[in-house]
Every structure is written in structure tokens, then in C-alpha cells.
């Protein structure tokens, strides 16, 4: 889902950058408020894990592959959508600047799609599904699936506005492929959250109130 520079006019890229900067500012405020010395290394490990998982493309049939995005994972584990914006912004900077995975001028759009939309959709659908089902696995899987699918549709609209994809065909193809990739996103998110909850249940106290989820 990493949009390269050649897929978007410079002026549109700058508009997305301006929007992204607002959310980056808010994510820095989250970091200032919610980060503690104890939590910093854990957030950094999560970023390293998301970077590594994003490099691991798995086949999803239809001649397509996909990987974890990580917006839902970061937001659920750290209890805020702004955590996803903070982590995904820094991961996307490393990917774009060092590895050319995603463009420089389109990085704002990529931050909006994967960090902002992925983080907010993942976090709030997780909260809603936890309230509705009380089942941690279902809530995590569905939230992560949505956090992959919805940003892909947003990217299709951005590609339409950029004149790169026609709207209908873009939405159909991006939707179909990311509906499949979302299964990877859901599965990996559930496994990662289970592992983190086993190792450090204290980390997730903000996202999952005590007594909920572990045994679900």
C-alpha cells in the first residue's frame, strides 16, 4: 500500500503532507502525555517488529502478495490511535528514505492511510467490537482486517484524484486484494497481541480493562 512518488502529482502530495503533519503533531502530544521511560523501549520494539513484518510479503492468491501494515496492532497495544500515527510515521520515514519503499512526496498520504486511518479504524473498531462481543480474538482480527481494508479504499480514492487509477476499477481491485491481505493483517495482529499480553500484560492495560480478553 506504499504509494510511490510517481503515482501522485507533487502538489497533491504536499496537501496530504500538510494534513499528515497535523496528526503527527497530535501524535507527538500523545507521546509527551502518555509515554514514560518504562514504555519507550516497548514502543521502539513494536516499531522494529512492524518494520520487519512489513518486509515479509506473503502470497494471498490472485497473483498478489501482502504484508502486515500494523496500524491496528500499534493502536490496540498502546491504547491510542495516535500511537499508530507516531510509530507508522517513523517506520515510513525509514522505509521511504533508506529503502525507497513508498515515496517522499507521497509519504504524507502513506502516513494518513496506514497511520491515521489504519490507527483510528483499528482502535475504535476494536473498542466497539470488544464491547459488543467481549471476545479478544474476534475484536482484534476484525479491527485489523478493517484497518487494512479501509485505508486501501482511501488509497484508491487518492489514486483517482491523482489521475493514476479510474475510481471504480481502482476501488474494486484495491478492495478485493486488501480484503485478502486483511486476513494476514488480522491473523498476525491476533498472534502478536496474544504474545505481548502473555509477556507484558501491563502494557495493554489502557486498551483492555483488567479481566477482559485474556481468556476470551
Amino acid at each position: 500500500m506504499h504509494i510511490p512518488d510517481s503515482f501522485m502529482p507533487l502538489t497533491q502530495g504536499l496537501v496530504y503532507w500538510a494534513i499528515a503533519l497535523v496528526f503527527i503533531g497530535l501524535s507527538l502530544r500523545w507521546a509527551r502525555k502518555d509515554m514514560s521511560e518504562d514504555r519507550i523501549p516497548i514502543v521502539a520494539v513494536l516499531a522494529a517488529g512492524i518494520f520487519a513484518l512489513q518486509s515479509f510479503n506473503l502470497p494471498v492468491s490472485m497473483g498478489t502478495s501482502g504484508h502486515l501494515v500494523g496500524g491496528a496492532l500499534a493502536a490496540i497495544v498502546l491504547g491510542s490511535p495516535f500511537a499508530a500515527v507516531f510509530i507508522l510515521t517513523l517506520v515510513l520515514i525509514v522505509q521511504g528514505v533508506i529503502f525507497g519503499d513508498g515515496g517522499i512526496t507521497t509519504m504524507g498520504a502513506n502516513i494518513i492511510n496506514m497511520g491515521v486511518i489504519g490507527g483510528f479504524v483499528g482502535f475504535y473498531s476494536f473498542k466497539g467490537l470488544m464491547r459488543a462481543t467481549g471476545n479478544m480474538n474476534i475484536a482484534c482480527f476484525s479491527a485489523a482486517w478493517l484497518a487494512c481494508f479501509i485505508p486501501a479504499l482511501a488509497a484508491a480514492v487518492e489514486m483517482f484524484l491523482a489521475g493514476t487509477f479510474p475510481l471504480r476499477e481502482g476501488l474494486i481491485a484495491m478492495g478485493v486484494y486488501h480484503a485478502l491481505i486483511g486476513i494476514i493483517e488480522g491473523f498476525v495482529t491476533v498472534v502478536a497481541i496474544r504474545l505481548i499480553m502473555t509477556a507484558r500484560p501491563d502494557i495493554m492495560k489502557l486498551a483492555v480493562p483488567a479481566g477482559q480478553g485474556v481468556g476470551a
Binding site: M1, H2, I3, F7, S55, F56, N57, L58, P59, M62, G63, T64, S65, G66, H67, A152, A155, A156, M159, T164, F165, G170, A173, M174, Y177, H178, I181
Partner: peptide, 12 residues
């Protein structure tokens, strides 16, 4: 890792 195109590349 799979060398097949990702979702955005496949769409393109």
C-alpha cells in the same frame, strides 16, 4: 517473502 506484486502494484 513472495515476489508477487503487492495490492497497490497488482491494482496498477
Amino acid at each position: 517473502a513472495s515476489s508477487q506484486p503487492d495490492g497497490l502494484e497488482s491494482t496498477a
